[in-house]
Amino acid sequence: MDFLSRYDLLGAFWVTVQLTVFSAIGSLVWGTVLAAMRVSPVPVMRAFGTAYVNLVRNTPLTLIIIGASLGLYSTLGLALADDTSGTFLKDNNFRLAVLGFVAYTATFVCESLRAGINTVPVGQAEAARALGLRFGQTLGIVVLPQAFRAVIAPLASVLIALTKNTTVASAIGVAEASLLMSEMIENESDKLFLVFASIAVGFVVLTLPTGLLLGWVAKKVAVKR
């Protein structure tokens, strides 16, 4: 096993963790905005939300990530980092990848949340409106907090999928765990199974506690009716 010490396994997984965390936060925010659009009384917003979700959710993730790199950066010249800095390419690719993951994962967050909104009895929103709360307040104070509590378990699945999906970032050269794996496979072709196993174990170490923790949180915060 001492061949592992020749590689920065921890460093690569740290990039995986960072990709996951930033993308998760962004997806949560953008996914919530999309869900709000999809239930809003404004037809244009609803139409945009629906079109976005159906389009992006059904596009392969690899296409989105490569599209972010080739389309946004190479073609449109959108730089998300300081292009005079020595780490420009690394930073820019990392951020483009996060952007792609957010765009994609938010559609799953949106759909989970919408399912959560459906578990909240209509009477809750009616009571809020009857008290004089406006649409945004009704959604933000009464409906979404209850919807979130109902979908923590499905959101945990989305998060676990996101963690594994970050491997797609290797397609645009982000140095996360699977890029390191490719490198290891080339150099250690005699230890193929050990290489696979160590990377797989790394992902399990990341995702298993996520699932357990959020499963526990889901039970803890469940709304009693």
């Binding site: 009571a127 009857a130 907090p145 709304v223």
Partner: peptide, 13 residues
Amino acid sequence: VGMVFQQFNLFAH
């Protein structure tokens, strides 16, 4: 205008 519902509709959370 105050309103009281058959199902109470208290905010459950």
